[in-house]
């Protein structure tokens, strides 16, 4: 034990000093490599002729070279740039990898067509989608966000209230629990055919399905959260003069919140799946519909472009949820950082 702590103490300062020294040469080196990788990407766009007909090759190449220049200045000016300089320094290894990957992608598709062409579009054709098909893409994003948000908020609210009532009231549990067991485990997409003809519009049907997919995990986890609150908390609150409403709102719910957030997270995941399927099958708007539409036209670049947007949106939604949780649950130790 003592040898461990001694070697630990002796070893700890040494790498620290070494890191600061190597940081100077190392981070400049990595920054330089990042700049070179992006320069390579830009030059690869401009140097060889395209094997197909893409209008954005030159802009992409120039854009990449501009990025390379920014990375270069950022790297050597990092000390004067403060926060952004530090951020760049941290991300430099990723910039190297991305630059190299883009170069490879460019060369393998647009320049030498090593990958079969219509299925693997080059970067410039995806850029082309973002510039030329922007209005349609934005409309789809807006439609998806609106549908998802509406369904998710309804599902999460109903799930939360249901979960609290089952966890709190035996009578509510008696009636709701069997229904929950019967309906809950069914994948929400199984309701698709019924939902689409029984609801007045495909939008309301999809909202219902998203709410259903969200509601089940939120209900179950809120319920288990409320049910697992230690009775000692209630005893304390009661001896201090708490009424039942206080016990629910100020004891049961805050104590259950960590569980609730797990439910909200799971609900978000399953509702994304329902959203995309619903848009592909019934709704005539949204990113799922855009994907389907692009497939119909064999517009593979549009599909990749939409997939990237979709992934950014889903990841953004989860980030938002985790930020909210971190803010509300600061009192918890060791929460996972997303």
């Amino acid at each position: 034990m003592s040898t461990y702590s001694v070697s630990d103490a002796a070893a700890a300062p040494a790498p620290r000093a070494a890191v600061t020294l190597s940081n100077l040469s190392g981070s400049y080196g990595i920054g330089l490599a990042a700049s070179l990788a992006w320069l390579a990407f830009g030059l690869s766009c401009l140097y060889w002729p395209d094997v197909g007909d893409w209008s954005r090759t030159d802009s992409l190449g120039i854009g990449a070279i501009v990025i390379a220049a920014f990375v270069l200045f950022g790297t050597f000016g990092a000390d004067y740039l403060g926060g952004p300089g530090e951020a760049l320094r941290k991300r430099a290894p990723w910039l190297v990898a991305l630059g190299a990957l883009f170069t490879l992608w460019e060369v393998a598709t647009a320049k030498f067509a090593w990958l079969p062409l219509p299925f693997f579009p080059p970067p410039q054709s995806i850029l082309e989608v973002y510039t030329d098909d922007l209005p349609k893409l934005l409309d789809s994003v807006f439609a998806s966000v609106k549908l998802q948000l509406g369904g998710y908020i309804i599902g999460a609210t109903i799930g939360f209230v249901t979960g609290v009532s089952i966890g709190w009231s035996q009578k509510a549990g008696y009636w709701i629990h069997p229904v929950l067991r019967f309906i809950g485990p069914l994948p929400a997409t199984a309701w698709l055919p019924i939902a689409f003809f029984s609801f007045p519009s495909s939008w309301s049907a999809s909202t219902f399905l998203i709410a259903l997919a969200t509601g089940f995990p939120v209900t179950v986890l809120t319920w288990s959260g409320v049910a697992s609150v230690s009775s000692a908390y209630y005893d304390v609150a009661r001896t201090l003069g708490a009424k039942p409403s206080f016990l629910v709102l100020k004891v049961a719910i805050p104590a259950a919140l960590p569980h609730v957030f797990v439910g909200l997270f799971m609900g978000l995941g399953s509702s994304f799946a329902v959203l995309v399927v619903a848009e592909m099958i019934g709704v005539k708007a949204g990113l799922g519909w855009y994907l389907q539409w692009a497939q119909g036209w064999a517009a593979y670049a549009n599909m990749y472009a939409a997939l990237i947007v979709m992934s950014l949106l889903c990841s953004g939604a989860i980030t938002l949820l985790f930020r909210t949780r971190d803010r509300l649950l600061v009192w918890q130790k060791g929460v996972v950082k997303w």
Binding site: A232, Y233, R238, T239, G241, V251, P254, W331
Partner: peptide
Amino acid sequence: GPHPSRVVVFQDPTLFPWRS
């Protein structure tokens, strides 16, 4: 029933972890 004129301090502090 319970009343705040008779308050209990338990063996475990049972502080509410979500409250300062």
